[in-house]
Design a binder for these strands. Structure first.
Lengths: 250, 250
DNA sequence: CTATCATTGTGTCAATTAAACACATTAATC
DNA sequence: GATTAATGTGTTTAATTGACACAATGATAG
């Protein structure tokens, strides 16, 4: 276990927290990284607080490095959750207090405005680590997730909504797939995020038209049936597409 | 002057502020509502703080009602600005301190994480009101705005970027135009936001295809040349389009 | 080692959408 | 009443999307 040895709430800004929806892709399924709370055994999104001298982005990066052991994670701020009632009527708060991290209870009893981030990571490279308040850190498939503490399920759904939007004007995949991947794998990723099936041939045509893929001379063998080509991203064009978007619109 | 008689910083959450980029449309130009600081005479975005029992949305709504005398303003949260250095190296802070609102200076010397909102309002119905720290509240055209306090120019630019994005998947205009308007006026609004010209005939065809417009039997007379039809929005379809978006994407 | 099977690679055709452009109409002005 | 400059309403062509067909191939079963 690579938990923090002490929870130093003294260093953090009051009232502000952040929650991260970490997406990964494995077994043709979209996964989300969750923590199991030590006491109530409820599941939660990884989150944290903001130190006095760091930006939200730095704080999110720090938290995600602690939870996944990864650097350079794709991070996107998508919404702030500020309902005054979002955290004060939930047993999870008691759980945090029970943790003993904050003896006088003043830290967890305050109201938090939480900034939501979603992250896209390479499933195979992440090494899930629980935090001070949890005893387990695991990937869960979307359909396995029924309840989460506080408003975390709402945060997860909003993140997914935003990820689906991103799909429509920015490339996706570099952060979620291994370096080399097949067209069917990329398509499955899209289908999983969107929750619907796409036409194989039209998908390929559209995807290739973005000019962000490089087809390798290699094929992926081992599976039954015809061996598909391997692709990798053209990083230069991928970055351009991230900046400029994929569609013109007006 | 309809200023607040007292600045009650005691009631607000520490470290959290909000800034609003209020867009209006007048004389075929996109306008932004700005405040002139009492002492330094620098210009700033309208902003405020969050009371202990209100959400960010409520706080933004409250602030905008104070600045424009309008209810039911279209509001959209677009980004949080959290650079630790964003406010502590700027003369504007001294200006706020000089205001005397907070004698021990503890309030304005703290670090603020600011949530950015943009608002779309009917120019002709807003009644600009300065706040406790400003002596003037005025509409400014985008090209008139060169410098703003703190990182407000950056906030403005990000808001504009987001507004341009919104144009590509949601209808716009109901909040910015009077109840009845002409097609050329609507087109000018789009052109102003996008900063580029559009083909008159293609614009009309595309806009009508959304089914959010109702053409009235009336025409707008008074201008030289042929009188254009007046339109109004079909509110039911407009709301649907806001929810579902205008384009399919994947 | 050959036939079978499921999947991949490639391509076509029709329908829809977008871009570029032309001409008739009309309200104010002189 | 002619002129002017903008509006109303098209058409034509190109580009994109959606639906679908068939050949190629790697593993597997017999």
């Amino acid at each position: 276990m690579n938990q923090e040895s002490k929870f130093q709430y003294e260093k953090f800004l009051n009232h502000i927290s952040l929650d991260c929806v970490v997406f990964g892709f494995h077994d043709n399924q979209l996964k989300v990284l969750l923590l199991r709370m030590k006491f109530t055994k409820e599941w939660a999104l990884p989150g944290g607080f903001v130190k006095e001298d760091e930006s939200l982005e730095s704080a999110a990066t720090r938290v995600l490095k602690e939870r996944t052991c990864l650097d350079n994670i794709f991070l996107k701020q998508f919404k702030v959750f500020s309902d005054p009632q979002r955290s004060n009527t939930n047993p999870a708060v008691q759980d945090l207090i029970d943790s003993g991290a904050n003896p006088d209870q003043s830290w967890f009893n305050q109201r938090f405005i939480s900034v939501g981030y979603y992250a896209l990571v390479d499933f195979s490279k992440a090494e899930p680590q629980p935090d001070y308040f949890s005893d387990l850190c695991e990937w869960k498939s979307l359909n396995e997730i029924n309840t989460l503490i506080l408003d975390h399920l709402q945060i997860l759904n909003k993140a997914l909504e935003n990820l689906r939007m991103q799909l429509n004007y920015q490339p996706i995949g570099y952060n979620l797939l291994p370096d080399k991947f097949t067209m069917p794998e990329l398509q499955k990723l899209y289908e999983t995020i969107l929750g619907k099936e796409l036409d194989r041939r039209n998908f390929q045509r559209k995807m290739l038209s973005y000019n962000i893929l490089i087809r390798l001379e290699e094929r992926k063998t081992g599976g039954a049936h015809k061996a598909p080509f391997l692709y990798e991203f053209n990083l230069e064009n991928y970055q351009k597409a991230l900046q400029n978007g994929l569609y013109g619109g007006w």
